[in-house]
Amino acid sequence: MKMKSALVTGTILAGLAGMTQAETMKIGITQNNVGVDSYQTTYEKAFIEAAEANENVEAVVLDAGGDVARQIAQIEDLIQQDVDAIIIWPTNGEAVIPAVRKAFQADIPVIVTNSNIAEQGFDFVKSFSGPDNITQGARSAEIMCDKFKEMGIETEAQVVHITGQPGYTTAIERAKGFEDRLPEVCPDVTIVDTQPGDWNREKSQQVMEAFLVKYDDIDGVYAGDDNMGVGALNAAKAAGRDDIIFVGATNFAVGYESMAAGDYWGSIYQSPVDDAKAALNTAVDVLSGEDVPFLNYFDTPKITQDNMDEFSKPVF
């Protein structure tokens, strides 16, 4: 008997706790783009390890390679496989909604991981497991503002903003958090330009090179993750600009190392291992009849050169 069918009636649900020892939960996951950065690579490895460690879980692990059409096809394939639950790391928060609706109509619970889908799809989702990206963006703004105040330039500083993949919920939310919070804490700081870096270090370096040509006065750079932030830092170093404050999110090992070297000021600490385990645990809890919050956030604290000794170097 499959776990999904075991959830049909209240009588069976009441006995589910005892049955889970014998039942196998077939959980499929379709990820965004494992090869694009080390965070997603580490997440996949941690997810597989967590699934293998749970004798009641059979995992089907897929990667969309950043292709929305491929991810939609993967969701439809998982529905055809009649999996018990689907975890989706969406390539695009709006485009995947019709496929998520199909899973909902097939009575397959969907858990969204890391980056949420657009709000109009919330009715088709059991839970979101991941970071609060708006809060992350807001915390990055606070980090940058505090540093500008320490430097005495909070009334005149100019900032450029490098965002993640367009249409990707994490990129949208981190940008919103930063751009909404910065004027609240540092109302005289100006964001002079915003361009996407697509989570890619090389592209972000090119974006920063263009910024440096276009603007004589850049005091700060906010990047939607450290991979992009270090790309921007590399451009600044090549141009001999060591006077710029760099703040990112999702503290990568390269960001941590750059902070230790005194080149990169701050970020937001987030573990892909915790992210992966939380997603799997959320799916298991849903299938086991547990009461799971719709927004199942894990904390992501501020990290700067001042407090980085309190944090371990990221493994990704």
Rank of each mutant, 00 (worst) to 15 (best):
A6W: 11
A6N: 10
L7A: 06
G10I: 10
A22H: 12
I27S: 02
G28C: 14
Q31A: 09
N33H: 13
G35L: 13
S38C: 00
T41H: 04
T41R: 12
F47D: 02
E49V: 00
E52R: 07
A59P: 05
D67S: 05
D67C: 06
R70S: 12
Q71S: 08
Q74T: 07
Q74N: 12
D77I: 09
A85W: 09
A85S: 10
T91G: 06
N92L: 11
I97E: 03
V100D: 03
P109L: 11
A118M: 11
E119Q: 09
F124G: 05
K126A: 14
F128D: 02
G130R: 05
G130N: 05
C145G: 04
K147L: 07
E150Y: 06
Q158D: 14
I162D: 03
T163F: 07
G167R: 02
A175Y: 06
A175S: 15
D180Q: 13
D180E: 15
P187F: 13
T190R: 12
V192A: 10
T194E: 12
Q195K: 11
G197Q: 08
R201D: 09
K203W: 09
S204K: 07
E209A: 06
E209T: 11
L212N: 05
L233R: 01
L233E: 06
A239Y: 04
S258F: 00
A261K: 09
A283N: 04
S288M: 09
E290S: 08
V292Q: 06
P293H: 04
F294I: 02
F294C: 01
T304S: 10
D306P: 01
F316K: 00
